[in-house]
Simulated scan of single mutants.
Amino acid sequence: MKFLTEYRDPALVAQYLDEIRKTVTRPWTIMEVCGGQTHSLVKNGILNLLPEAVQMVHGPGCPVCVTPLNLIDKAVYLAEEKGVMLCSFGDMIRVPGSTKSLLEAKANGADVRILYSPLEAVRLAQENPDREVVFFAVGFETTAPANALSVLQAQRLGLTNYSILASHVLVPPAIAAVMNDDEVRIQAFLAAGHVCTIMGVGEYYALVEQYNIPIVVTGFEPVDLLHGILMTVRQLEAGKANLENQYSRVVKAEGNPDARKVIGQVFTVADREWRGIGTIPMSGWEVRPELAAFDAGKKFDVRIAKAPECADCIAGLVLKGIRKPVECSQFGKACTPENPLGAPMVSSEGACAAYYHYAEV
């Protein structure tokens, strides 16, 4: 299959690994921002194949993992107390809130539904005019176009019973927040290819210049990742700091103009709280004021007091690349995918889940 088997070619993998070994002369620490990249690195054993001098650390690029505890509590509240039809992608269902998850709310009788597209939620609103339908719109820039499109579609259809509970976060401000943390020692980044497919690469030039770090936009298959790591190591060894695009077969400099236009019609940039990290200025999207009728938080005037994170969970340190999942005292013990203390253990892009399922620990 085109763009699959050739990017899992063992011969190319061996070739890139050999080039990396020949190139590296000193220790380097590289963060892969995206949780999908983390899973590929762990699942395919790449972390064990890289030379010891190349240390990969895992970043905050898991949208489920950084969704604030308070927002999950709001989703549960809407489902249980307001009686809405709460729709969500499957990976949000089991993420723990302060007292329960959406799955537990569903087990207790709340109408929580797992969908594959927000447009399915619009259809449900059409088919159930007597019910309020809320879609839990979580994600990075990648999922924002579809969520925005659902709002525009509901508006076009004249639906007054559809809204979204939005928790969209942005990658460039997260990279800046990581670099501004005194505990972090990151020397380069692999940027998420799917995010750049939507947004393009223009936002990363300022980060490269401000922090004097290489950033390489990278895909997700083993060959993509190793090629991206090689490009990064070559820059580091040469003392360079540039933006490069390894994923050029998919990512164009301008991104997807149509998708960006749809996002701009529905969302505006705002401060956003990141679970385990805190508030990052201008790091997310919220529904525009003129579309407040489709903003579930405003529509239902949801006010839920903030609850503290689990004291035994080090998810924030994992998301900032300060700790590895196996360095958590609760990893695989009190914290498992069946009974997660934090989102990184249950999300399909969470670093803790990747280590639990695939790593030899």
Rank of each mutant, 00 (worst) to 15 (best):
Y116E: 07
S117P: 01
P118A: 06
P118F: 01
L119K: 05
L119E: 01
E120N: 12
A121F: 06
A121S: 11
V122H: 02
R123C: 11
L124V: 13
A125R: 04
A125N: 08
Q126V: 08
E127Q: 15
N128R: 11
N128Y: 08
N128M: 07
D130Q: 15
D130M: 12
E132H: 13
V133Y: 07
V133R: 04
V134Y: 08
V134D: 05
F135I: 08
F136K: 00
A137Y: 01
V138Y: 02
V138N: 02
G139I: 00
F140N: 01
E141F: 03
T142I: 12
T142F: 07
A144M: 07
A144Q: 06
A144F: 05
P145A: 01
A146I: 09
A146C: 11
N147L: 11
N147R: 10
A148C: 07
L149M: 15
L149C: 13
S150W: 09
V151P: 05
L152S: 05
L152N: 04
Q153S: 14
A154S: 06
Q155Y: 13
Q155H: 14
Q155S: 15
L157V: 12
L157E: 13
G158S: 11
L159Q: 07
T160W: 09
N161A: 13
S163F: 08
I164A: 04
L165G: 03
A166K: 03
A166V: 12
A166S: 11
S167I: 09
S167K: 08
H168N: 04
H168A: 00
